[in-house]
């Protein structure tokens, strides 16, 4: 069976400085995989490389094979815009466009499928319900989105991504800038998204990775040290480096 994401011997460097070294991983369809590891170990780079967000970064170089639904992410002539619609990315800090809540939700859709403009209100309602935001914003859809709280903005950013119907969601520390209550709301949302999407989540919060993910990849210094079912990685880590990292994180 073709995995949702296939990463084979991927090496990434910025201006010759290696960031990812011989990284390989498989992500099954409709599963949630957490990527954990110390800061600066290449977790975010892995996500950005998958959605080709690093293409414009000067000195960025990638080798190896990255496949999404069997399609080579770096194939010559690949339509990057189509790839990014298939592989949605959620950033650490939500970025609201200086427009209304409604316009933010349908922002991607308005550019890609303008012919469906009559459906936009229904789609907006549907995705806002999926991120549990509808009840909070239904009476102020045409008010500026940047006025929402950070937690609400992050849910709105996820709704905006869901509106373009991606198969895969890449979540780059989506709760790190949020208060505990908002973080919990995002976590519940991630759990609810698992049944329709494949999720790859970068997080520093190990408890969150444990609660949310089916499998975990532990990265250190740009290399995959250990990967497997989340319960096994956390409960019976096979490598000393994993044990040391989990131990340090627990003490902190």
């Amino acid at each position: 069976m073709i995995p949702a994401i296939g990463i084979v011997d991927v090496r990434v460097a910025y201006n010759g400085k290696p960031v990812l070294d011989a990284v390989s991983a498989r992500v099954r369809k409709h599963s949630a995989v957490a990527v954990i590891g110390p800061s600066g170990t290449g977790k975010s780079t892995l996500l950005r490389t998958l959605s080709r967000m690093n293409d414009r970064v000067p000195g960025f170089k990638v080798e190896g094979k990255l496949r999404v639904g069997g399609e080579d992410v770096y194939a010559k002539g690949l339509d990057v815009c189509r790839l990014r619609r298939k592989v949605g990315m959620i950033f650490q800090t939500p970025c609201m466009f200086p427009k209304s809540i409604f316009e933010n939700v349908i922002f991607g859709l308005r550019h890609q499928e303008p012919a469906r403009s009559k459906e936009f209100p229904d789609i907006a309602q549907q995705v806002l319900r999926r991120v549990f935001l509808w009840e909070e914003v239904k009476d102020r859809l045409h008010k500026p989105a940047p006025n929402l709280s950070l937690g609400q903005q992050q849910r709105l950013a996820i709704a905006r991504t869901l509106a373009v119907e991606p198969d895969i969601l890449l979540l780059d520390e989506p709760t790190s800038s949020l208060d505990p209550q908002s973080a919990l709301a995002i976590e519940e949302l991630i759990l609810s998204l698992k049944k329709d999407h494949t999720l790859l989540l970068v997080t520093h919060q190990l408890a969150q990775a444990r609660r949310v993910s089916d499998e975990t990849i532990f990265l250190e210094a740009g290399r995959v040290i250990e990967s497997g079912p989340t319960e096994a990685v956390f409960g019976r880590p096979a490598h000393a480096a994993t044990r040391a990292y989990l131990g340090r994180a627990e003490e902190a």
Partner: peptide, 23 residues
Amino acid sequence: LPEQYREAAGALGLSRWQVVRSI
């Protein structure tokens, strides 16, 4: 213009010209 606007729009699958026009 903060780079995050371009990234957020690009991540939704907008082309460079669409990012230019809308953001």
